[in-house]
Amino acid sequence: MYNSDIKAQEVHFVEIGINGLHCSACTFSVERSLKKLDFVSVIQMDLNKRSGKVFFKSDGSINYKLLSKAVIDAGFSVRSFDVVFRTPLIADEHCFGKDFCILNKEVGPGDRIRLLGKNFQEKKAVKESEALLNQDCKGCPDASQRLKVVLI
């Protein structure tokens, strides 16, 4: 089981851009799928932007892969997946927490990271991120387990 060591209370929300949402019934299905996750507190779907903001229970940890899976299981695709922190994070190195690898050349400060790769971006964006995704996280513990992100 994947778990972030970044406390849920440090995360303001996760914003997921969702492809394939073209009706309120579809949006409702995604919301219900996300609500099944026990670490999710509140969901604010935006039917016009075809995206959703997910807020979390403060006492738990966040499983980002399960959030993406919930969208895909509802029959849709993830276009973008951003984690927004309550306060700008000070990232002075590419290893962030134990679960993220920041791939920007210059890091921090910033309050939003964008997850890269399959199930977190649309196919076209994954191709465009190929050069970044091919970078490794040398020097980071458990490098192969880390989610690759950019600070935006």
Partner: peptide, 19 residues
């Protein structure tokens, strides 16, 4: 605006998993 929730035919889209 259009939809694909056709009354008399089925779209290629599916019912959400577990629903």
């Amino acid at each position: 605006n259009a939809q694909e929730l056709f009354p008399n035919t089925e779209p290629a889209s599916t019912v959400p998993k577990g629903v």
